[in-house]
């Protein structure tokens, strides 16, 4: 059975108001464990909306979101957070790091609400920082890092809770070719380690990569077609 199952999903913003907007309409999709899936489509086609529903950031207006066999569509926020914390790591378009805080603390933040001691947390973080080659900058504030380094901090933070799925929204939008390649190389390693990866992008450099197993093209909140490579 697929790791992520989506059935008849729709997301309507501002229901009942004049500016009501259907961001997703009757979307069904499944993503297997260990797969690299890419959502493509023009801006406004609903990629980010779909990602946030998959990643338990928001609740759908209708339909089912089944993660590892459990429908999370109607879960109260508190439990949605628990699922998100346990299964997903996020890499955002704007990195979303806390700029005045050190690299290490940024990476550790997802673990703060858990009952885990500081030293145990650091033991978890250090190998990840080393793997991403930023451990030497762990005490620097994020605002003093270059774009590429910030991207790697963001990846480290997404990995700290040992997620099964990595969700990345337009990850290469702010990167040049070389850094984008570096990013894809990191993803490749992670995929080899068994992580499922879901990326939303309209960057051909990403969706044409050999890594990608499934391309889902979207338009106006609907799935136009699914290509399996």
């Amino acid at each position: 059975m697929a790791y992520i199952e989506i059935e008849g999903l729709s997301k309507v913003y501002n229901v009942g108001r004049a500016d009501e907007l259907t961001a997703l309409a009757d979307v069904s999709l499944s993503i297997d464990s260990g797969e690299v899936a890419v959502l493509t489509g023009s801006s406004g086609s609903g990629k980010t909306s779909l990602l946030s529903l998959i990643g338990c950031m928001a609740r759908p207006t209708q339909g089912k979101v089944i993660i590892a066999g459990k429908d999370v569509a109607k879960l109260p926020e508190r439990f949605l957070t628990a699922v998100r914390r346990k299964r997903f790591g996020f890499i955002f378009q704007q990195f979303n790091l806390i700029r005045d805080v050190s690299v290490l603390e940024n990476v550790l933040l997802p673990l703060y609400p858990l009952d885990l001691g500081m030293s145990a947390m650091k033991d978890k973080a250090m190998p990840i920082l080393e793997k991403l080659k930023i451990s030497h900058k762990k005490n620097l504030k994020v605002k003093n890092l270059s774009g590429g380094e910030q991207q790697r901090v963001a990846i480290a933070r997404a990995l700290i809770n040992e997620p099964e799925v990595i969700i990345a929204d337009e990850p290469t939008a702010h990167l040049d070719r070389r850094l984008a390649q570096e990013f894809l190389d990191i993803l490749e390693v992670l995929n080899h380690e068994g992580k499922t990866i879901v990326i939303a992008t309209h960057d051909p450099f990403v969706y044409d990569n050999r890594l990608v197993g499934k391309t889902v093209s979207m338009r106006d909140g609907r799935i136009e077609g699914v290509t399996i490579h």
Partner: peptide
């Protein structure tokens, strides 16, 4: 506000 949003997105609950 962005900081709180980030914290929530990376796994902090409203309670936290």
């Amino acid at each position: 506000k962005l900081e709180i949003g980030i914290l929530k997105a990376i796994g902090w609950d409203t309670d936290d």
